[in-house]
Amino acid sequence: MLLSNLLEYMGIERNRLHMSWVSSAEATKFIDVVTEVTEAVRALGPNKYFIKDQAKVA
């Protein structure tokens, strides 16, 4: 929780980091969470702020 607060404090949108608790028997909950996480991140758009530029390898 402190991590996500600090991330947001530094300018990384809160919804980029998700945590959940899914039992190995909860396949349906797993799918729900995957969908939810995907939609939340899709709504935010691409992460541009915190990406390190990599040297382009030919």
């Binding site: 402190l2 991590l3 600090l6 991330l7 530094m10 915190f50 990406i51 390190k52 530029d53």
Partner: peptide, 22 residues
Amino acid sequence: GKGQDAVDVMTFHFLRAYHCAG
């Protein structure tokens, strides 16, 4: 990374601070 890349610098400060949490 070890250079002065802005993201590296920020990662360093972020993680150093986080290691001091609590």
